[in-house]
Design a binder for these strands. Sequence first.
DNA 1: TTTTGTAATTGGTCGAACCACTGAACCAAT
DNA 2: ATTGGTTCAGTGGTTCGACCAATTACAAAA
Lengths: 246, 246
Amino acid sequence: MNAAKGILSPISKNKLYEEIVGQIQEKIISGSLPAGSKLPAERDLALDLKVNRGTVREALKKLEMLGLVEIRHGDGIYVKNYLESGNLELLKSIIYSNKYITPDLLHNILDLRKILVPEMAGIAARNRSAKDLAAIKKAVSDKKTSVAQRDLDLHHAIALASNNILYIFILNFFNQLFRDYGYLYFNEKENEERSERFHEEIVRAIEKKKSAEATEIMRDVLVYTEKKIYSYYEKAARAAAEGGNK
Amino acid sequence: MNAAKGILSPISKNKLYEEIVGQIQEKIISGSLPAGSKLPAERDLALDLKVNRGTVREALKKLEMLGLVEIRHGDGIYVKNYLESGNLELLKSIIYSNKYITPDLLHNILDLRKILVPEMAGIAARNRSAKDLAAIKKAVSDKKTSVAQRDLDLHHAIALASNNILYIFILNFFNQLFRDYGYLYFNEKENEERSERFHEEIVRAIEKKKSAEATEIMRDVLVYTEKKIYSYYEKAARAAAEGGNK
DNA sequence: TTTTGTAATTGGTCGAACCACTGAACCAAT
DNA sequence: ATTGGTTCAGTGGTTCGACCAATTACAAAA
Protein backbone atom coordinates (compact mmCIF):
# COMPACT_ATOMS: atom_id res chain seq x y z
CA MET A 1 0.00 0.00 0.00
CA ASN A 2 2.65 2.51 -0.99
CA ALA A 3 0.82 4.12 -3.82
CA ALA A 4 -1.54 6.99 -3.28
CA LYS A 5 -4.99 5.69 -2.58
CA GLY A 6 -8.40 6.87 -3.59
CA ILE A 7 -7.18 9.19 -6.33
CA LEU A 8 -9.04 7.47 -9.07
CA SER A 9 -12.58 6.29 -9.21
CA PRO A 10 -13.83 3.41 -11.31
CA ILE A 11 -14.94 4.44 -14.77
CA SER A 12 -18.53 3.69 -15.61
CA LYS A 13 -19.00 1.50 -18.62
CA ASN A 14 -22.52 2.09 -19.78
CA LYS A 15 -24.38 -0.95 -20.87
CA LEU A 16 -26.40 -0.48 -24.01
CA TYR A 17 -29.76 -1.16 -22.45
CA GLU A 18 -29.02 1.38 -19.71
CA GLU A 19 -28.38 3.93 -22.40
CA ILE A 20 -31.78 3.21 -23.90
CA VAL A 21 -33.46 3.45 -20.50
CA GLY A 22 -31.85 6.84 -20.01
CA GLN A 23 -33.02 8.18 -23.34
CA ILE A 24 -36.62 7.09 -22.98
CA GLN A 25 -36.78 8.01 -19.31
CA GLU A 26 -35.62 11.52 -20.10
CA LYS A 27 -38.25 11.91 -22.79
CA ILE A 28 -40.99 10.81 -20.42
CA ILE A 29 -39.92 12.89 -17.42
CA SER A 30 -39.41 15.98 -19.57
CA GLY A 31 -42.86 15.54 -21.01
CA SER A 32 -41.98 15.07 -24.64
CA LEU A 33 -43.50 11.61 -24.32
CA PRO A 34 -46.76 12.40 -22.49
CA ALA A 35 -48.68 9.90 -20.41
CA GLY A 36 -50.96 7.74 -22.51
CA SER A 37 -48.92 8.02 -25.66
CA LYS A 38 -47.88 4.86 -27.42
CA LEU A 39 -44.28 3.96 -28.08
CA PRO A 40 -43.15 2.45 -31.38
CA ALA A 41 -43.18 -1.33 -31.54
CA GLU A 42 -40.15 -3.12 -30.13
CA ARG A 43 -38.99 -4.00 -33.61
CA ASP A 44 -39.19 -0.39 -34.72
CA LEU A 45 -37.41 0.86 -31.60
CA ALA A 46 -34.64 -1.64 -32.28
CA LEU A 47 -34.40 -0.36 -35.82
CA ASP A 48 -34.34 3.29 -34.78
CA LEU A 49 -31.79 2.77 -32.01
CA LYS A 50 -29.78 0.41 -34.19
CA VAL A 51 -29.64 -2.27 -31.51
CA ASN A 52 -31.02 -5.74 -31.19
CA ARG A 53 -34.61 -6.25 -30.21
CA GLY A 54 -33.57 -8.25 -27.13
CA THR A 55 -31.62 -5.27 -25.89
CA VAL A 56 -34.64 -3.05 -26.37
CA ARG A 57 -36.72 -5.51 -24.42
CA GLU A 58 -34.35 -5.40 -21.46
CA ALA A 59 -34.59 -1.63 -21.44
CA LEU A 60 -38.38 -1.73 -21.64
CA LYS A 61 -38.53 -4.22 -18.80
CA LYS A 62 -36.62 -1.82 -16.62
CA LEU A 63 -38.77 1.12 -17.66
CA GLU A 64 -41.80 -0.93 -16.72
CA MET A 65 -40.42 -1.60 -13.25
CA LEU A 66 -39.72 2.07 -12.77
CA GLY A 67 -43.40 2.71 -13.38
CA LEU A 68 -42.77 4.67 -16.57
CA VAL A 69 -44.40 2.43 -19.16
CA GLU A 70 -46.92 -0.34 -19.39
CA ILE A 71 -46.31 -3.24 -21.75
CA ARG A 72 -49.39 -4.96 -23.16
CA HIS A 73 -48.98 -8.21 -24.98
CA GLY A 74 -50.43 -8.06 -28.46
CA ASP A 75 -51.13 -4.37 -28.13
CA GLY A 76 -48.15 -2.14 -27.53
CA ILE A 77 -46.17 -0.07 -25.08
CA TYR A 78 -47.82 2.89 -23.38
CA VAL A 79 -46.38 5.73 -21.35
CA LYS A 80 -47.78 5.92 -17.83
CA ASN A 81 -48.21 8.92 -15.58
CA TYR A 82 -45.11 8.51 -13.49
CA LEU A 83 -46.55 10.69 -10.73
CA GLU A 84 -49.13 7.96 -10.21
CA SER A 85 -46.97 4.91 -10.72
CA GLY A 86 -43.40 5.97 -10.03
CA ASN A 87 -41.39 4.71 -7.10
CA LEU A 88 -38.18 5.43 -5.24
CA GLU A 89 -36.20 3.36 -7.74
CA LEU A 90 -37.29 5.80 -10.39
CA LEU A 91 -36.01 8.63 -8.26
CA LYS A 92 -32.65 6.92 -7.93
CA SER A 93 -32.56 6.32 -11.65
CA ILE A 94 -33.27 9.98 -12.36
CA ILE A 95 -30.60 11.13 -9.94
CA TYR A 96 -27.95 8.82 -11.35
CA SER A 97 -28.74 9.56 -14.96
CA ASN A 98 -28.67 13.32 -14.36
CA LYS A 99 -25.46 12.94 -12.33
CA TYR A 100 -26.70 15.52 -9.85
CA ILE A 101 -29.52 16.36 -7.47
CA THR A 102 -31.64 19.45 -7.93
CA PRO A 103 -32.07 21.77 -4.93
CA ASP A 104 -35.77 20.97 -4.71
CA LEU A 105 -35.11 17.26 -4.67
CA LEU A 106 -32.44 17.65 -2.03
CA HIS A 107 -34.94 19.47 0.16
CA ASN A 108 -37.52 16.78 -0.46
CA ILE A 109 -35.13 14.06 0.57
CA LEU A 110 -33.89 15.78 3.70
CA ASP A 111 -37.41 16.75 4.74
CA LEU A 112 -38.68 13.23 4.60
CA ARG A 113 -35.58 11.93 6.31
CA LYS A 114 -36.07 14.33 9.16
CA ILE A 115 -39.58 13.04 9.72
CA LEU A 116 -38.92 9.37 9.24
CA VAL A 117 -35.56 8.61 10.78
CA PRO A 118 -36.11 10.13 14.24
CA GLU A 119 -39.42 8.29 14.45
CA MET A 120 -37.62 5.10 13.47
CA ALA A 121 -35.01 5.66 16.17
CA GLY A 122 -37.73 6.07 18.78
CA ILE A 123 -39.43 2.85 17.74
CA ALA A 124 -36.09 1.05 17.71
CA ALA A 125 -35.35 2.26 21.24
CA ARG A 126 -38.69 0.93 22.39
CA ASN A 127 -38.59 -2.42 20.61
CA ARG A 128 -34.90 -3.33 20.43
CA SER A 129 -33.96 -6.81 21.53
CA ALA A 130 -30.68 -7.69 23.23
CA LYS A 131 -29.42 -8.95 19.91
CA ASP A 132 -30.39 -5.69 18.20
CA LEU A 133 -28.47 -3.72 20.81
CA ALA A 134 -25.40 -5.87 20.31
CA ALA A 135 -25.57 -5.29 16.55
CA ILE A 136 -25.92 -1.55 17.08
CA LYS A 137 -22.92 -1.43 19.40
CA LYS A 138 -20.92 -3.50 16.97
CA ALA A 139 -21.73 -1.13 14.12
CA VAL A 140 -20.37 1.95 15.91
CA SER A 141 -17.31 0.24 17.37
CA ASP A 142 -15.95 -1.42 14.26
CA LYS A 143 -12.65 0.44 14.00
CA LYS A 144 -11.76 -1.28 10.74
CA THR A 145 -14.20 0.94 8.90
CA SER A 146 -14.42 4.68 8.27
CA VAL A 147 -16.64 6.97 10.27
CA ALA A 148 -18.86 7.36 7.23
CA GLN A 149 -19.28 3.61 6.95
CA ARG A 150 -19.96 3.22 10.66
CA ASP A 151 -22.63 5.89 10.35
CA LEU A 152 -24.35 3.98 7.57
CA ASP A 153 -24.05 0.72 9.51
CA LEU A 154 -25.50 2.32 12.62
CA HIS A 155 -28.52 3.63 10.76
CA HIS A 156 -29.06 0.23 9.21
CA ALA A 157 -28.78 -1.50 12.59
CA ILE A 158 -31.30 0.92 14.05
CA ALA A 159 -33.65 0.26 11.16
CA LEU A 160 -33.36 -3.47 11.78
CA ALA A 161 -34.11 -2.89 15.46
CA SER A 162 -37.26 -0.98 14.57
CA ASN A 163 -38.54 -4.33 13.37
CA ASN A 164 -40.42 -2.69 10.53
CA ILE A 165 -39.37 -3.84 7.08
CA LEU A 166 -40.67 -0.63 5.51
CA TYR A 167 -38.31 1.50 7.54
CA ILE A 168 -35.49 -0.79 6.56
CA PHE A 169 -36.24 -0.55 2.87
CA ILE A 170 -36.83 3.18 2.81
CA LEU A 171 -33.66 3.73 4.79
CA ASN A 172 -31.84 1.69 2.15
CA PHE A 173 -32.85 4.37 -0.31
CA PHE A 174 -31.30 7.10 1.81
CA ASN A 175 -28.19 5.10 2.56
CA GLN A 176 -27.58 4.29 -1.08
CA LEU A 177 -27.61 7.99 -1.85
CA PHE A 178 -25.39 8.94 1.06
CA ARG A 179 -22.95 6.19 0.21
CA ASP A 180 -22.23 8.06 -3.00
CA TYR A 181 -22.62 11.66 -1.88
CA GLY A 182 -21.87 11.54 1.84
CA TYR A 183 -18.11 11.83 1.45
CA LEU A 184 -18.51 15.59 1.28
CA TYR A 185 -19.77 15.65 4.83
CA PHE A 186 -17.29 13.28 6.39
CA ASN A 187 -14.34 14.97 4.77
CA GLU A 188 -14.31 17.50 7.59
CA LYS A 189 -12.70 16.48 10.83
CA GLU A 190 -15.23 18.48 12.83
CA ASN A 191 -18.12 16.52 11.37
CA GLU A 192 -16.43 13.22 12.01
CA GLU A 193 -16.04 14.06 15.67
CA ARG A 194 -19.61 15.29 15.84
CA SER A 195 -20.74 11.95 14.45
CA GLU A 196 -18.75 9.94 16.93
CA ARG A 197 -20.29 11.82 19.81
CA PHE A 198 -23.71 11.35 18.31
CA HIS A 199 -23.10 7.62 17.99
CA GLU A 200 -22.37 7.36 21.68
CA GLU A 201 -25.44 9.33 22.66
CA ILE A 202 -27.94 7.50 20.50
CA VAL A 203 -26.58 4.10 21.48
CA ARG A 204 -26.95 5.02 25.13
CA ALA A 205 -30.55 6.13 24.63
CA ILE A 206 -31.39 2.95 22.76
CA GLU A 207 -29.68 0.84 25.39
CA LYS A 208 -31.81 2.44 28.09
CA LYS A 209 -34.87 2.07 25.88
CA LYS A 210 -35.54 5.79 26.16
CA SER A 211 -37.68 6.23 23.09
CA ALA A 212 -38.42 9.94 23.17
CA GLU A 213 -34.81 10.69 23.93
CA ALA A 214 -33.58 8.64 21.00
CA THR A 215 -35.98 10.49 18.74
CA GLU A 216 -34.73 13.83 19.97
CA ILE A 217 -31.07 12.96 19.59
CA MET A 218 -31.64 11.72 16.08
CA ARG A 219 -33.57 14.82 15.15
CA ASP A 220 -30.87 17.09 16.52
CA VAL A 221 -28.11 15.43 14.57
CA LEU A 222 -30.17 15.45 11.39
CA VAL A 223 -30.80 19.16 11.76
CA TYR A 224 -27.08 19.72 12.22
CA THR A 225 -26.05 17.62 9.24
CA GLU A 226 -28.78 19.16 7.15
CA LYS A 227 -27.31 22.63 7.54
CA LYS A 228 -23.88 21.33 6.64
CA ILE A 229 -25.19 19.47 3.64
CA TYR A 230 -26.92 22.56 2.29
CA SER A 231 -23.77 24.62 2.62
CA TYR A 232 -21.65 21.95 0.90
CA TYR A 233 -24.26 21.61 -1.79
CA GLU A 234 -24.30 25.33 -2.53
CA LYS A 235 -20.54 25.40 -2.61
CA ALA A 236 -20.44 22.50 -5.03
CA ALA A 237 -23.16 24.08 -7.15
CA ARG A 238 -21.21 27.34 -7.39
CA ALA A 239 -18.06 25.47 -8.35
CA ALA A 240 -19.95 23.56 -11.01
CA ALA A 241 -21.45 26.79 -12.35
CA GLU A 242 -18.03 28.39 -12.68
CA GLY A 243 -16.64 25.30 -14.33
CA GLY A 244 -19.55 25.33 -16.74
CA ASN A 245 -19.03 29.00 -17.59
CA LYS A 246 -15.52 28.53 -18.85
CA MET B 1 -72.95 -5.86 -21.31
CA ASN B 2 -75.73 -8.41 -20.96
CA ALA B 3 -73.71 -11.09 -19.29
CA ALA B 4 -73.38 -11.22 -15.52
CA LYS B 5 -70.59 -9.05 -14.38
CA GLY B 6 -68.03 -9.54 -11.67
CA ILE B 7 -68.69 -13.25 -11.30
CA LEU B 8 -65.43 -14.31 -12.77
CA SER B 9 -62.01 -12.87 -12.23
CA PRO B 10 -59.36 -12.84 -14.92
CA ILE B 11 -57.06 -15.81 -14.71
CA SER B 12 -53.49 -14.81 -14.19
CA LYS B 13 -51.37 -15.82 -17.11
CA ASN B 14 -47.96 -15.76 -15.58
CA LYS B 15 -45.27 -14.76 -17.93
CA LEU B 16 -42.38 -17.17 -17.87
CA TYR B 17 -39.87 -14.71 -16.55
CA GLU B 18 -42.18 -13.79 -13.67
CA GLU B 19 -42.31 -17.44 -12.74
CA ILE B 20 -38.53 -17.54 -12.63
CA VAL B 21 -38.40 -14.38 -10.53
CA GLY B 22 -40.82 -15.95 -8.08
CA GLN B 23 -38.81 -19.14 -7.74
CA ILE B 24 -35.47 -17.47 -7.15
CA GLN B 25 -36.96 -14.74 -4.98
CA GLU B 26 -38.52 -17.35 -2.73
CA LYS B 27 -35.22 -19.18 -2.37
CA ILE B 28 -33.43 -15.98 -1.40
CA ILE B 29 -36.03 -14.70 1.06
CA SER B 30 -36.38 -18.11 2.70
CA GLY B 31 -32.66 -18.26 3.12
CA SER B 32 -31.93 -21.34 1.05
CA LEU B 33 -29.88 -19.07 -1.20
CA PRO B 34 -27.84 -17.13 1.38
CA ALA B 35 -26.33 -13.72 0.74
CA GLY B 36 -22.98 -13.95 -0.99
CA SER B 37 -23.67 -17.23 -2.69
CA LYS B 38 -23.20 -17.48 -6.43
CA LEU B 39 -25.96 -18.48 -8.79
CA PRO B 40 -25.39 -20.84 -11.71
CA ALA B 41 -24.42 -19.18 -14.97
CA GLU B 42 -27.23 -17.84 -17.15
CA ARG B 43 -26.71 -20.67 -19.62
CA ASP B 44 -26.96 -23.26 -16.88
CA LEU B 45 -30.04 -21.64 -15.36
CA ALA B 46 -31.69 -21.67 -18.78
CA LEU B 47 -30.84 -25.36 -19.09
CA ASP B 48 -32.15 -26.23 -15.63
CA LEU B 49 -35.36 -24.24 -16.04
CA LYS B 50 -35.79 -25.42 -19.63
CA VAL B 51 -36.28 -21.88 -20.93
CA ASN B 52 -34.40 -19.61 -23.26
CA ARG B 53 -31.41 -17.72 -21.96
CA GLY B 54 -33.02 -14.41 -22.88
CA THR B 55 -35.97 -15.23 -20.65
CA VAL B 56 -33.58 -15.99 -17.79
CA ARG B 57 -31.88 -12.67 -18.38
CA GLU B 58 -35.16 -10.78 -18.09
CA ALA B 59 -35.84 -12.50 -14.79
CA LEU B 60 -32.36 -11.71 -13.50
CA LYS B 61 -32.78 -8.09 -14.52
CA LYS B 62 -35.85 -7.83 -12.35
CA LEU B 63 -34.18 -9.62 -9.45
CA GLU B 64 -31.35 -7.14 -9.71
CA MET B 65 -33.75 -4.21 -9.54
CA LEU B 66 -35.43 -5.68 -6.50
CA GLY B 67 -32.06 -5.63 -4.78
CA LEU B 68 -31.88 -9.40 -4.52
CA VAL B 69 -28.90 -10.15 -6.76
CA GLU B 70 -25.90 -8.42 -8.23
CA ILE B 71 -24.87 -9.19 -11.80
CA ARG B 72 -21.19 -8.82 -12.60
CA HIS B 73 -20.15 -8.90 -16.22
CA GLY B 74 -17.54 -11.56 -16.83
CA ASP B 75 -17.88 -12.92 -13.34
CA GLY B 76 -21.28 -14.16 -12.32
CA ILE B 77 -24.49 -13.54 -10.40
CA TYR B 78 -24.32 -13.13 -6.63
CA VAL B 79 -27.05 -13.09 -4.01
CA LYS B 80 -27.19 -9.87 -2.01
CA ASN B 81 -28.38 -9.26 1.52
CA TYR B 82 -31.86 -8.04 0.73
CA LEU B 83 -32.15 -6.36 4.13
CA GLU B 84 -29.40 -4.03 2.98
CA SER B 85 -30.41 -3.54 -0.62
CA GLY B 86 -34.11 -4.33 -0.82
CA ASN B 87 -36.76 -1.73 -1.62
CA LEU B 88 -40.49 -1.24 -1.59
CA GLU B 89 -40.79 -2.89 -4.99
CA LEU B 90 -39.39 -6.03 -3.44
CA LEU B 91 -42.03 -5.82 -0.77
CA LYS B 92 -44.74 -5.56 -3.40
CA SER B 93 -43.25 -8.48 -5.27
CA ILE B 94 -43.23 -10.61 -2.12
CA ILE B 95 -46.82 -9.73 -1.31
CA TYR B 96 -48.09 -10.51 -4.79
CA SER B 97 -46.17 -13.74 -5.14
CA ASN B 98 -47.34 -14.98 -1.74
CA LYS B 99 -50.90 -13.86 -2.55
CA TYR B 100 -51.35 -12.65 1.01
CA ILE B 101 -49.96 -10.28 3.64
CA THR B 102 -48.64 -11.58 6.93
CA PRO B 103 -49.96 -9.97 10.12
CA ASP B 104 -46.53 -8.53 10.91
CA LEU B 105 -46.26 -6.96 7.51
CA LEU B 106 -49.76 -5.51 7.75
CA HIS B 107 -48.79 -3.87 11.03
CA ASN B 108 -45.59 -2.54 9.49
CA ILE B 109 -47.47 -1.01 6.62
CA LEU B 110 -50.18 0.60 8.71
CA ASP B 111 -47.66 1.89 11.27
CA LEU B 112 -45.64 3.68 8.66
CA ARG B 113 -48.72 4.99 6.98
CA LYS B 114 -49.97 6.44 10.23
CA ILE B 115 -46.73 8.36 10.65
CA LEU B 116 -46.26 9.47 7.09
CA VAL B 117 -49.65 10.32 5.71
CA PRO B 118 -50.84 12.73 8.42
CA GLU B 119 -47.52 14.54 8.17
CA MET B 120 -47.99 14.73 4.43
CA ALA B 121 -51.48 16.16 4.86
CA GLY B 122 -50.12 18.87 7.16
CA ILE B 123 -47.45 19.84 4.69
CA ALA B 124 -49.99 19.85 1.88
CA ALA B 125 -52.28 22.14 3.86
CA ARG B 126 -49.40 24.54 4.40
CA ASN B 127 -48.00 24.52 0.86
CA ARG B 128 -51.00 23.91 -1.36
CA SER B 129 -51.45 26.21 -4.31
CA ALA B 130 -54.81 27.28 -5.69
CA LYS B 131 -54.37 24.71 -8.43
CA ASP B 132 -53.64 21.99 -5.88
CA LEU B 133 -56.83 22.85 -4.02
CA ALA B 134 -58.85 22.67 -7.19
CA ALA B 135 -57.43 19.25 -7.95
CA ILE B 136 -58.22 18.05 -4.44
CA LYS B 137 -61.81 19.26 -4.66
CA LYS B 138 -62.18 17.66 -8.06
CA ALA B 139 -60.94 14.33 -6.70
CA VAL B 140 -63.56 14.12 -3.96
CA SER B 141 -66.44 15.42 -6.06
CA ASP B 142 -66.09 13.17 -9.09
CA LYS B 143 -69.36 11.30 -8.83
CA LYS B 144 -68.55 9.12 -11.78
CA THR B 145 -66.19 7.09 -9.63
CA SER B 146 -66.63 4.88 -6.59
CA VAL B 147 -65.96 6.09 -3.08
CA ALA B 148 -62.91 3.84 -2.97
CA GLN B 149 -61.54 5.43 -6.12
CA ARG B 150 -62.25 8.93 -4.88
CA ASP B 151 -60.39 8.09 -1.70
CA LEU B 152 -57.34 7.00 -3.67
CA ASP B 153 -57.57 10.08 -5.87
CA LEU B 154 -57.83 12.36 -2.87
CA HIS B 155 -54.74 10.90 -1.25
CA HIS B 156 -52.86 11.27 -4.51
CA ALA B 157 -53.96 14.86 -4.91
CA ILE B 158 -52.85 15.63 -1.36
CA ALA B 159 -49.49 14.01 -2.04
CA LEU B 160 -49.09 16.18 -5.11
CA ALA B 161 -49.96 19.25 -3.05
CA SER B 162 -47.25 18.38 -0.52
CA ASN B 163 -44.88 19.20 -3.32
CA ASN B 164 -42.51 16.47 -2.20
CA ILE B 165 -41.86 13.80 -4.80
CA LEU B 166 -40.87 11.30 -2.11
CA TYR B 167 -44.27 11.49 -0.48
CA ILE B 168 -45.85 11.02 -3.86
CA PHE B 169 -43.84 7.93 -4.67
CA ILE B 170 -44.18 6.31 -1.26
CA LEU B 171 -47.90 6.99 -1.33
CA ASN B 172 -48.02 5.23 -4.68
CA PHE B 173 -46.84 2.14 -2.87
CA PHE B 174 -49.69 2.33 -0.37
CA ASN B 175 -52.26 3.12 -3.01
CA GLN B 176 -51.23 0.24 -5.21
CA LEU B 177 -51.81 -2.12 -2.30
CA PHE B 178 -55.13 -0.60 -1.32
CA ARG B 179 -56.33 -0.65 -4.89
CA ASP B 180 -56.19 -4.45 -4.68
CA TYR B 181 -57.15 -5.03 -1.05
CA GLY B 182 -59.21 -1.98 -0.15
CA TYR B 183 -62.49 -3.34 -1.46
CA LEU B 184 -62.96 -5.11 1.87
CA TYR B 185 -63.18 -1.79 3.63
CA PHE B 186 -65.43 0.02 1.22
CA ASN B 187 -67.87 -2.85 0.97
CA GLU B 188 -69.54 -1.61 4.14
CA LYS B 189 -71.96 1.27 3.80
CA GLU B 190 -70.96 2.67 7.18
CA ASN B 191 -67.35 3.00 6.07
CA GLU B 192 -68.33 4.65 2.83
CA GLU B 193 -70.26 7.30 4.68
CA ARG B 194 -67.43 7.76 7.14
CA SER B 195 -65.09 8.37 4.23
CA GLU B 196 -67.33 10.93 2.61
CA ARG B 197 -67.51 12.91 5.83
CA PHE B 198 -63.76 12.67 6.20
CA HIS B 199 -63.29 13.94 2.66
CA GLU B 200 -65.27 17.06 3.45
CA GLU B 201 -63.38 17.74 6.65
CA ILE B 202 -59.89 17.31 5.27
CA VAL B 203 -60.65 19.40 2.20
CA ARG B 204 -61.92 22.19 4.42
CA ALA B 205 -58.77 22.12 6.55
CA ILE B 206 -56.56 22.17 3.49
CA GLU B 207 -58.58 24.97 1.97
CA LYS B 208 -58.08 27.07 5.12
CA LYS B 209 -54.42 26.06 5.17
CA LYS B 210 -54.82 24.76 8.70
CA SER B 211 -51.86 22.46 8.78
CA ALA B 212 -52.12 21.01 12.28
CA GLU B 213 -55.82 20.46 11.82
CA ALA B 214 -55.31 18.59 8.57
CA THR B 215 -52.73 16.40 10.25
CA GLU B 216 -55.13 15.60 13.08
CA ILE B 217 -58.05 14.80 10.81
CA MET B 218 -55.92 12.51 8.75
CA ARG B 219 -54.57 10.77 11.79
CA ASP B 220 -58.05 10.24 13.19
CA VAL B 221 -59.39 8.66 10.06
CA LEU B 222 -56.36 6.43 9.73
CA VAL B 223 -56.82 5.20 13.28
CA TYR B 224 -60.43 4.45 12.50
CA THR B 225 -59.74 2.61 9.26
CA GLU B 226 -56.86 0.76 10.89
CA LYS B 227 -59.15 -0.84 13.42
CA LYS B 228 -61.57 -1.84 10.70
CA ILE B 229 -58.81 -3.25 8.55
CA TYR B 230 -57.50 -5.41 11.38
CA SER B 231 -60.92 -6.82 12.04
CA TYR B 232 -61.54 -7.58 8.36
CA TYR B 233 -58.11 -9.08 8.12
CA GLU B 234 -58.68 -11.41 11.05
CA LYS B 235 -62.02 -12.43 9.68
CA ALA B 236 -60.47 -13.19 6.28
CA ALA B 237 -57.61 -15.06 7.94
CA ARG B 238 -60.03 -17.22 9.89
CA ALA B 239 -62.01 -17.98 6.77
CA ALA B 240 -58.84 -18.89 4.92
CA ALA B 241 -57.75 -21.14 7.78
CA GLU B 242 -61.06 -23.01 7.71
CA GLY B 243 -60.91 -23.35 3.98
CA GLY B 244 -57.40 -24.68 4.26
CA ASN B 245 -58.41 -27.27 6.86
CA LYS B 246 -60.93 -28.96 4.63
C1' DT C 1 -77.27 -4.97 -36.58
C1' DT C 2 -74.90 -8.51 -34.38
C1' DT C 3 -71.90 -12.21 -34.48
C1' DT C 4 -68.17 -14.79 -36.36
C1' DG C 5 -64.02 -15.61 -38.59
C1' DT C 6 -59.65 -14.15 -40.36
C1' DA C 7 -55.52 -11.40 -41.21
C1' DA C 8 -52.28 -8.06 -39.47
C1' DT C 9 -49.82 -6.21 -35.63
C1' DT C 10 -47.41 -6.59 -31.46
C1' DG C 11 -45.28 -8.51 -27.41
C1' DG C 12 -43.24 -13.26 -25.65
C1' DT C 13 -40.12 -17.08 -26.29
C1' DC C 14 -36.69 -19.63 -28.62
C1' DG C 15 -31.86 -21.23 -30.35
C1' DA C 16 -27.33 -20.41 -31.81
C1' DA C 17 -23.65 -17.60 -32.40
C1' DC C 18 -20.26 -14.01 -31.33
C1' DC C 19 -18.44 -9.94 -28.50
C1' DA C 20 -16.59 -7.98 -24.02
C1' DC C 21 -15.22 -8.42 -19.48
C1' DT C 22 -13.26 -10.95 -15.38
C1' DG C 23 -10.40 -13.90 -12.76
C1' DA C 24 -7.00 -17.38 -12.42
C1' DA C 25 -2.99 -19.45 -13.89
C1' DC C 26 1.31 -19.12 -15.74
C1' DC C 27 5.50 -16.99 -17.22
C1' DA C 28 9.17 -13.47 -17.49
C1' DA C 29 11.65 -9.73 -15.73
C1' DT C 30 13.23 -7.38 -11.79
C1' DA D 1 9.54 -12.54 -3.47
C1' DT D 2 7.31 -9.14 -6.14
C1' DT D 3 5.67 -7.02 -10.18
C1' DG D 4 3.89 -6.88 -14.75
C1' DG D 5 2.48 -9.31 -19.15
C1' DT D 6 0.15 -13.06 -21.48
C1' DT D 7 -3.01 -16.48 -22.15
C1' DC D 8 -7.23 -18.96 -21.45
C1' DA D 9 -11.53 -20.50 -19.77
C1' DG D 10 -15.84 -18.93 -17.94
C1' DT D 11 -19.51 -15.54 -17.74
C1' DG D 12 -22.47 -11.74 -18.80
C1' DG D 13 -23.77 -8.54 -23.01
C1' DT D 14 -25.46 -8.29 -27.70
C1' DT D 15 -26.93 -9.88 -32.18
C1' DC D 16 -29.60 -12.38 -35.67
C1' DG D 17 -33.52 -14.76 -37.32
C1' DA D 18 -37.38 -17.45 -36.45
C1' DC D 19 -41.74 -18.82 -34.45
C1' DC D 20 -45.49 -18.64 -30.63
C1' DA D 21 -49.35 -16.05 -28.40
C1' DA D 22 -52.37 -12.18 -27.40
C1' DT D 23 -54.85 -8.22 -29.21
C1' DT D 24 -57.04 -5.49 -32.55
C1' DA D 25 -59.35 -4.29 -36.78
C1' DC D 26 -62.16 -5.47 -40.21
C1' DA D 27 -64.45 -8.14 -43.48
C1' DA D 28 -67.73 -11.87 -43.96
C1' DA D 29 -71.68 -14.25 -42.44
C1' DA D 30 -75.83 -14.63 -39.84
